[in-house]
C-alpha cells in the first residue's frame, strides 16, 4: 500500500498518534526508500508507539524483538527445539520400524524449529512491522549480526539453506541513546529524533488520549509539564506517558483546574524518584507551577532540532 505524506499524516491521526511534520515525513521516507527507521530520543516520547501505529495503519502484524544485554542469535532468529528432538529420538528407538534416515530428516523439520522474531518477520506472508526495541542495549557482536540481516533480509539455516524474505518488512528500531550505535547500523537506517513535545503538541496529545478532560485543565497540564521539563534539572524528566497519567489522575480527582493542593497530591505521578520531588519542591514548588501554568508564561521551548 502506497501512501502520500498527507495520507500518512491523517492515518497516524486516525490511530490516535499525534506527530509533527518531521516525524511523518521521515517515516514516509523510510517506507518509500524501504529502509529501517531508527528512532532515537529520551524515554517516553512515543518511539515504540510509532511501530504500533504503523502496524495499525497497514493493518498488519507487529513482531517485536525486545533487546537486552546478552541477547543472542538463538533468542532473536531461531533455535532448534532440543528437548522435542530428544523425545523424538527416544521414541524412534522404541519403535524400531522408523527408518533412521527419515528420523534424521524429520528432526530438522518445521516442527522442531522455534521461530524467533527475526525469522518470523522474514517468513511472514504479509509485510509485517518488525519492532526492534531498545537496540542500544545489545552488545556489538549482535549489532553486527543485526545489520547484516537488515541489509539483505535473508538468513541461512545450515540444515535448510538460505531463506530470503518474500517482501521487505517495515522495520522500526528504537534507542534511548544509552550507547552510541555503530556507524554501520546507522548508515543502513533512516534517522528520526523524537524530543519531548512542545506544549501545543502535548495539548493535542492530551485531548486525543484523555477526551474526558476539560479544555482548561488540559491546557494547564501541558504548560505545567513543559515548564517542569524546561526549568528543572531532573534525573528523569516527565514523559508523555506521565503527562497522560497525571491528566487522568486529575480527572479522577474531579479537578477542573490546577491548584497547589491538587498538584501536591499528585506529585508522585509526575516524578518517579525522591530526588526529583525534592528538586521540584526546592526550586519550583506547587505555587509557582500553578501560577506559571495559569498565566501562560510557562510555554516551554518548542521541540526544535536536536
Amino acid at each position: 500500500m502506497e501512501l502520500s505524506i498527507e495520507q500518512l499524516k491523517s492515518a497516524f491521526e486516525q490511530q490516535g498518534y499525534i506527530a509533527d511534520e518531521e516525524a511523518v515525513v521521515t517515516t514516509y521516507l523510510a517506507l518509500k526508500l524501504q529502509k529501517p527507521l531508527l528512532v532515537e530520543g529520551p524515554p517516553g516520547v512515543g518511539k515504540t508507539e510509532i511501530a504500533k501505529v504503523l502496524a495499525g495503519v497497514f493493518d498488519t502484524e507487529l513482531i517485536r524483538l525486545q533487546c537486552y544485554e546478552g541477547l543472542d542469535e538463538n533468542k532473536a532468529l531461531y533455535e532448534w527445539n532440543y528437548q522435542k528432538q530428544l523425545i523424538k529420538i527416544q521414541l524412534s528407538q522404541v519403535n524400531r520400524e522408523d527408518r533412521r534416515q527419515a528420523v534424521e530428516d524429520n528432526l530438522f523439520s518445521e516442527d522442531y524449529l522455534l521461530e524467533r522474531p527475526l525469522l518470523k518477520a522474514i517468513r511472514a506472508e504479509k509485510t509485517p512491522v518488525l519492532l526492534i526495541d531498545e537496540v542500544d542495549k545489545v552488545d556489538q557482536e549482535f549489532e553486527a549480526f543485526l545489520f547484516e540481516v537488515l541489509s539483505d533480509f535473508q538468513v541461512s539455516i545450515p540444515e535448510w539453506g538460505t531463506l530470503k524474505s518474500r517482501q521487505i518488512p517495515i522495520v522500526v528500531l528504537t534507542s534511548n541513546g544509552e550507547r552510541e550505535l555503530s556507524d554501520g547500523l546507522k548508515r543502513r537506517c533512516v534517522y528520526l529524533y523524537l524530543d519531548f513535545p512542545n506544549p501545543a503538541k502535548e495539548l493535542r496529545i492530551i485531548t486525543a488520549k484523555v477526551p474526558e478532560i476539560s479544555r482548561r485543565l488540559s491546557l494547564e497540564v501541558a504548560k505545567a509539564v513543559g515548564y517542569i521539563r524546561e526549568r528543572l534539572e531532573l534525573r528523569k524528566k516527565p514523559s508523555i506517558a506521565e503527562t497522560l497519567d497525571w491528566a487522568r489522575a486529575l480527572v479522577a480527582l474531579d479537578a477542573d483546574r490546577l491548584t497547589p493542593e491538587v498538584v501536591d497530591l499528585t506529585l508522585n505521578i509526575i516524578f518517579k524518584n525522591k530526588d526529583d520531588i525534592d528538586t521540584f519542591r526546592q526550586n519550583l514548588g506547587p505555587q509557582e507551577l500553578v501560577a506559571s501554568a495559569a498565566n501562560g508564561t510557562g510555554v516551554g521551548k518548542p521541540g526544535g532540532r536536536g
Binding site: V25, Y28, L29, L33, V190, Y193, R305, G306
Partner: peptide, 30 residues
C-alpha cells in the same frame, strides 16, 4: 533518493529529507 520522494519546493520537507538520511545523532542534527 529521499529528495526525489519529497516535495522539493517545500523547504521544510527538503531539510527533513536531509536530516533523516544524513544526520544520525542529535549533535549532527544541530
Amino acid at each position: 533518493n529521499a529528495l526525489a520522494a519529497v516535495n522539493m519546493l517545500d523547504r521544510r520537507q527538503v531539510e527533513t529529507a536531509f536530516l533523516a538520511t544524513l544526520a544520525k545523532s542529535p549533535e549532527d542534527r544541530v
